[in-house]
Design a protein around this nucleic acid. Structure first.
Lengths: 161, 161
DNA sequence: CACTATTCCTAGTGGGTAAGTAGAGAATAG
DNA sequence: CTATTCTCTACTTACCCACTAGGAATAGTG
């Protein structure tokens, strides 16, 4: 249940592009500007943006006045889509999709737990767009979750060893 | 968002022990029996069970009539606890807890997304016990999630390349 | 047409870690 | 005292994440 550096960087880069998009949707932003502003290693960022371009979320232009920009409105790009592009499926068990794992005996229904995790993640991440994050205003699934009194507090007790 | 082999094996081993516990709570189960029945590499399983013992979920005994058993009722052991022991925090961003990450500029509220993921996972996984999985009967958060019509179906479209 | 600035592509590298193995040592029962 | 089983330490193997290097392609500028 780790968010990788790739996804973290990718999200931040896309948010940077989204902000620029809202000001001027045709504006091209240089990789170097994203890299410096968000403290992301330049060449790694390039690789990430290229992946996002292949997936159709970003448009790029080379040359002296080149740069990157979003291909569509920030409202129409969800966190779930970006994670899937950069990291693959939202939930997987030993590399397999939850619906493909099969257990014997007492573990038979364990599959339901993994499927449930996937649905839970979908519900949250498919409902949040880049525009939502920029505005800091979230809709139903996520907004309710953040009201949990201990949302921003770690569970105690397992710093063992 | 990967469930590791360690967690997968650990869950299945615990379910096997849970089933035996319901029949006779004092019964010791041999590692070899778990390994064969659930197709888990023996020595790897031993390491996992030792970790679970250190965390207090399992009791073991050596010798000719030795083996492993649960330390308490399967109803009182949640999936969340086991994942935390075997894999660490339910959600982390580049190795950090969600409440500790800090972003600048347009990414400022990205933290809320990661925090939301954690709450979502907690809601599901803290509410499911080994006994629930054995019975195949789940309570509120998970039971509702599994009713989603596409719960057992993958999202299409990102087998790219 | 140079010249410069930028992205694009291929190909790495280093380090960490997950997954699994080996074997001797220690406890327990009969 | 022997057979069985868990315990512990160490090791291996392989993969993959995070990141890097260098040049090729592209586009504007004088």
């Amino acid at each position: 249940m780790q968010v990788s550096a790739k996804v973290d960087y990718g999200m931040r880069a896309m948010l940077f592009l989204a902000e620029s998009y809202l000001a001027d949707s045709a504006q091209l932003v240089k990789g170097d500007a994203i890299s410096k502003s968000q403290a992301i290693p330049v060449k790694f960022l390039e690789a990430i943006l290229t992946e996002l371009r292949h997936a159709g979320f970003v448009i790029s232009q080379r040359g002296a006045v080149g740069g990157y920009r979003l291909s569509r409105n920030p409202e129409q790009i969800s966190v779930a889509e970006l994670i899937r592009v950069l990291d693959g499926p939202l939930a997987a068990v030993r590399g397999q999709r939850p619906e493909n794992v099969h257990y014997e005996g007492p573990a038979e229904r364990l599959q339901d737990v993994w499927v449930g995790i996937r649905v839970a993640l979908r519900n949250v991440l498919e409902g949040v767009s880049l525009a939502d994050i920029l505005a800091g205003k979230f809709a139903e699934p996520l907004s309710e979750l953040l009201k949990a009194p201990d949302a921003y507090i770690s569970r105690p007790g397992y710093e063992s060893n």
